[in-house]
């Protein structure tokens, strides 16, 4: 039984944060040197043509009117037209968002599952030779810059062994009828392997170390002595009693990581030529394509805020002390 008032309060808070973030984004982009006009008006344009464009986009209106118009549009999920592509921003960022999420979600699911499991084991093995070796390996892997690992992996598996494609999301000749078909094709999965492998290797470190530390802390609790005194197997003590409590902060970390995953891993998207949201955001900023950058940042914040909310809800589900709300 989840405390309804708590959920309602958290939800209201989430909407408020979102509103504030989008407002800040709007005014922030209007303070950027150059302004939107320089991006798509040409110095060689005649004064009349320039006026026409400005009129057409409503850039003559006072700022507050522009702001209200923008907010009304955003409420209808309309983020305007891209200056660069000339197409709808919503459609563009949805496409890039799916590309990024297919990569990041897979990588995070793998790294958090493996990391949590290995972290629990390492915590249990504390003080043994196995643990010391394990920690060195983890810290070593964690210290490698992700773009460097990516390039090494690309070099070995893509160029030398030639077993995996060297970039992109699918063969350039392939075409698919539906989005689902696109993401379920073996072609896509084949392209997914190297970037996911690179990312999972990198991201496993955090949940692993977090889980290990939590396990070490939980193992000194007296309810662990109780569990051992009951004659339970080590496995059961570790996974039913210790890991069940130790996993709570990892769940939060996972939800927050997913939030930030939307921004994509710019470096990895660059190395593997992955057409994701991260790369798009960087390029949109460089091109002064404000509608795209603004839309992408708004989506990013929305997901981060939503995932924080989800993390809190997951917490209330996993921890009975929060669930029943001792007010």
């Amino acid at each position: 039984m989840v405390n309804k008032r708590y959920v309602a309060r958290r939800f209201a808070l989430m909407l408020a944060s979102l509103f504030i973030v989008i407002t800040i984004l709007f005014f922030l982009f209007r303070q950027v040197p150059g302004g939107p006009m320089s991006a798509f008006t040409n110095p060689r344009m005649s004064q009349a043509a320039r006026q026409a464009v400005i009129e057409q986009y409503g850039l003559n209106d006072p700022l507050w009117r522009q702001y209200i118009r923008y907010m009304v549009n955003v409420a209808q999920l309309d983020f305007g037209q891209s200056f660069y592509y000339g197409s709808s921003v919503s459609a563009l960022i949805t496409d890039r968002f799916l590309n990024t999420m297919s990569l990041m979600l897979t990588a995070f699911t793998i790294s958090y599952t493996v990391g949590t499991y290995l972290g629990a084991q390492l915590g249990w093995l504390r003080g043994t030779a196995k643990e010391r070796v394990g920690m060195v390996v983890v810290l070593f892997v964690r210290s490698m810059p992700v773009f460097w690992t990516g390039m090494v992996i690309l070099y070995v598996f893509g160029f030398q062994l030639d077993v995996f494609p060297i970039g992109g999301m699918r063969e350039s000749t392939a075409s698919y009828d539906t989005t689902t078909a696109k993401f379920l094709s073996t072609d896509f999965l084949y392209h997914l392997v190297l970037p996911v492998f690179t990312l999972s290797t990198y991201y496993t470190g955090l949940p692993l170390l977090l889980m290990r530390n939590n396990i070490l802390e939980v193992l000194s609790e007296s309810y662990i002595d109780t569990a051992r005194a009951k004659g339970l197997t080590n496995r059961r003590v570790l996974f039913v009693h210790a890991a069940r409590t130790a996993i709570l902060p990892v769940v939060t970390a996972f939800a927050i990581a997913i939030g930030f995953a939307v921004g994509g891993q710019v470096l990895i998207e660059q190395v593997f030529s992955w057409p994701g949201l991260g790369r798009e955001m960087v390029q949109a900023s460089l091109r002064s394509d404000y509608p795209v950058a603004q839309g992408a940042f708004a989506l990013l914040s929305a997901i981060v805020i939503t995932m924080n909310f989800v993390a809190d809800l997951a917490y209330t589900y996993l921890d009975p002390r929060v669930r029943l709300g001792e007010s």
Partner: peptide
């Protein structure tokens, strides 16, 4: 065993 049950000897979750 009877531990200091009043404290944290029962698993809270």
């Amino acid at each position: 065993l009877i531990s200091q049950g009043a404290m944290n000897a029962l698993n809270p979750v």
